[in-house]
Design a binder for these strands. Structure first.
Lengths: 224, 224
DNA sequence: CGACCATTTGATATGGATCAAGCGATGTGG
DNA sequence: CCACATCGCTTGATCCATATCAAATGGTCG
């Protein structure tokens, strides 16, 4: 149960600081820690494993998830460049985490962070802030999961668009199955709903992973 | 039906330890603050209002909620004796809160708590812990909301049973509508599902608000 | 080219929503 | 004290959104 996360710290890739524009968490210890990288679909940590590290995405995309008793998978969240994940108050992870594509993360030992927070109230507040951000996103998902399929997709697209769109075009890192498991739908429903949005001219879908937002207000109104 | 403790809204009742068995949050400032009481269905605070106080339930039950764009209400959580609610990292509430029945709370000014946390890392950790507990429960609800109606009810009953059952019997403070809005179901589905559990002899329902858990493992297995 | 996998599309089934009515407890006014 | 209104809950009938089952399409890589 203890020990080896299947983590191999690769020799320092010269990752060009892919720092996103958002308020950077873990500021106080921002410069500490080393980098690790993971191949697509590689496990980063498992549910119930001891929480050894806290992770910050440098590049790539990560999903956290749980496998439900009936075998379905529920995705807890997607983490993109600049996002922090894997932080727990307790000493065990509540979700598993996997790389969606090639991922580089910076890691800091949990023990170091917690020790720091015991001395430095500023650092302690950062931990609180990170957890509160997670809470907000979990609460938003709660609201998502009681909406209709088109509404869920619209929310998802707006969320992703805000994170990684350039000129209304975005390249999704995750598969239809990932999206379905995130939104609590089936892959077929996700696909059909996207097709519908295309025929409404709300979005374009030049390739299955590339989305063009053609009518943002139509997406927003779906939730109105 | 006289179930609630008869608590008067009088000024300063010298409330002695409102101790629940759980690790007491806000320990450092546990003794500060004054009491407030609310009548059934009275608003405690509204969404987007400035977060002036943090609340701890002394007696009664509280619901937090949002009204969705289509008019439906989603309940964020139920808070019973000993639970803390209304704490935000930012300065605005994300949900509204109402008393379900007659409620007494102890309140502490948010500014006092935050100021304390800036000096005292121990207090800062408490804030983190409270928010992390909220996060865990929001994540559990995420998982709930993708399950079948009987599974959601089973989860709900086990959760409530753990909180307020005495000898396998519990008195629900909340209405069917509250339960429905908590579980993302309709009132009819909640009612039918409970009826089904009764005919399975999984629970007894001597009155509409009183639940007797007859076969706990059957409830647990529903989620298996 | 051919195998494989992700995605889309089609046909059908079903769980829970919706619409509608009935029931039991509680309270109110005549 | 009883007729009646009200409210919360239950039950019944029907509908519909999404799941499920099944097959076709298309992109990728050996």
């Amino acid at each position: 149960m203890l020990m080896q996360t299947p983590i191999r710290p690769t020799a320092a890739l010269p990752v060009t600081a892919t720092v996103s524009g958002r308020p950077v968490a873990l500021g106080a210890i921002e410069l500490m820690g080393s980098q690790m990288s993971f191949a697509a679909n590689e496990e980063i940590f498992g549910e119930n494993e001891p929480c050894e590290y806290v992770y910050k995405v440098v590049s790539g995309a990560v999903r956290t998830y749980k496998i439900l008793a009936d075998g379905r998978r529920q995705i807890g969240g997607f983490y993109l460049a600049g996002d922090t994940f894997g932080l727990e108050v307790g000493t065990e992870h509540h979700f598993s985490a996997e790389a969606i594509n090639k991922v580089v993360v910076r890691v800091v030992r949990r023990s170091a962070i917690v020790a720091q927070a015991e001395r430095d109230c500023e650092a302690a507040r950062e931990l609180w802030t990170i957890t509160a951000r997670e809470l907000k996103s979990a609460q938003e998902r709660m609201l998502l999961l009681v909406k209709s399929a088109p509404q869920r997709l619209a929310c998802f697209l707006l969320e992703m668009s805000a994170r990684l769109a350039v000129a209304n075009t975005l390249e999704l890192p995750m598969s239809r199955q990932d999206i379905a498991d995130y939104l609590g739908l089936t892959i077929e429903t996700v696909s059909r709903t996207l097709t519908q949005l295309v025929s409404d001219a709300t979005i374009g879908l030049p390739t299955s992973r590339r989305i063009v937002v053609r009518n943002r207000s139509a997406l927003a109104e779906l939730n109105a």
